[in-house]
Nucleic acid binder design. Structure first.
Lengths: 244, 244
DNA sequence: GTAATAGTGTCTTTTAGACAATATTGG
DNA sequence: CCAATATTGTCTAAAAGACACTATTAC
């Protein structure tokens, strides 16, 4: 009865188990635009959505993965090499119709990472590739219900950026206030008032100045780092009270 | 190989599937206190955590449940009889250690319902029972990792109550503004200033007066209902900017 | 009348929005 | 000096906090 898999041997009413997957929406800001990392579905015969673009992800491996988050971290590391990015769960989606192979549930995470060194990671048709996001969507058709999952992740990101310090995770450790403001503007797709932005950032004690400046053909900019790199900061108001 | 369950027959690499469950955190405000509905784990031999209290939930039924949310609604209806409550996903938790029967993932929802007619639903030792919440916890030990799940749901509720109209779903369709304010105060465990509260509620066009008042040994109170019962309203600020 | 709760008004404080003014570098 | 960007300041407006005041009913 159980050879390699004692799957259903514990429960008396041997119930059928849904498929369990994890998908990761990896965001980065490249060239003034929000981008998401997509992979190619394998061309193998028995794989659904052959050759289409999809979110990085796959089945939970009950041998390798201690829990869902480490499963997400594993997939993220495999695709980007980034060691400790910002990672947050968006939610889970499950149902009979989302995967032709049967009832499946996916656990969706989103991650923010600084812009990668090589803009498009080498060859344009490689396995993983950055795609720009234009009004809540990406320019390619996605496998499964991944368009819906992506949209939910974008929504979550936009909402949360209004009142948190999340965009700081889109930057390297050291950044100027203008850099930071720029991340907010790119994600929110709207300009933010400089003076109010700075007041707010300082009031929240979000950043602390370091002993460096960034030079240019102008007045050098003070460099900052996060006061508490691990803790995400919540602002008491959104950036645009009037519009909500 | 597959008798009643063609579980692993689709995937070529016959991977072991985690258990998939749904748990629902059902909140209501009873006697000025936030309560959560808990059930008794069955006393059957092969069930873990026999006779302990737990969140209502159980395995996803791939025959009955079209998707995760309808699975949650089914479990909610079974325990409360409430037809269309407020229901929102909190997140999912999965790992090797949370269920003695093996790698499992649970999808957690939380729900808000008006106070039930009978305060404790009949006999005090019945299958389902309301438990008061005192500082982020309930007074009983819970099965599995349900204490953690409950805490996350409470946290989510409290956070969201700061800037949304969620507490309206803890009331019947018709309510006074004092009723509504009271729901906020109970969930947040802190008094709210009456004048500011009213200004805010009206500014958001959250409620509309109906042609009824509630009489008492005092000036009668205007009754209201939600302007858009389906849509949850986001306030531009939290209730207590200074404290965050 | 009194008790009790409903509802309004007034003043202060905080912080965003708008926008101007000043600061500091490279060339 | 000028161009370019960094940084600060000033004024206004919106909305919450605090608290007092008025309103309307049952008794």
């Amino acid at each position: 009865m159980e050879m390699t898999k004692p799957v259903a041997s514990f429960d008396p009413h041997v119930i059928e188990r849904p498929l369990s997957t994890v998908d990761v929406v990896i965001f980065s800001v490249i060239d003034e635009r929000l981008h998401v990392l997509l992979v190619l579905r394998p061309e193998t015969m028995d794989e659904p959505f052959k050759g289409m673009r999809a979110l990085p992800g796959g089945f939970v491996d009950v041998q390798k993965d201690l829990d869902l988050e480490s499963c997400a971290r594993r997939k993220l590391q495999e695709k980007t090499g980034v060691k400790s990015p910002y990672l947050e769960q968006v939610g889970s989606w499950g149902g009979i119709k989302r995967d032709p192979r049967g009832w499946s549930a996916t656990h969706v995470y989103f991650s923010l990472i600084p812009a990668p060194e090589s803009p498009s990671d080498g060859t344009p048709n490689s396995d993983v590739k950055w795609f720009p996001i234009a009004n809540q969507r990406v320019g390619t058709k996605l496998a499964f219900d991944h368009a819906k999952l992506l949209e939910a992740a974008i929504q979550r990101l936009r909402n949360k950026v209004e009142y948190t310090s999340l965009p700081a995770y889109l930057l390297p450790e050291e950044f100027t206030l203008t850099d930071l403001q720029h991340m907010y503007e790119v994600v929110l797709e709207r300009p933010i008032e400089k003076s109010a932005f700075r007041t707010r950032v300082f009031a929240a004690n979000l950043v602390e100045p370091i002993d460096k400046v960034r030079a240019g053909a102008n007045r050098p900019a003070q460099l900052y780092r996060l006061t508490q790199p691990k803790a995400i900061v919540y602002f008491p108001r959104t950036f645009s009270p009037r519009k909500i």
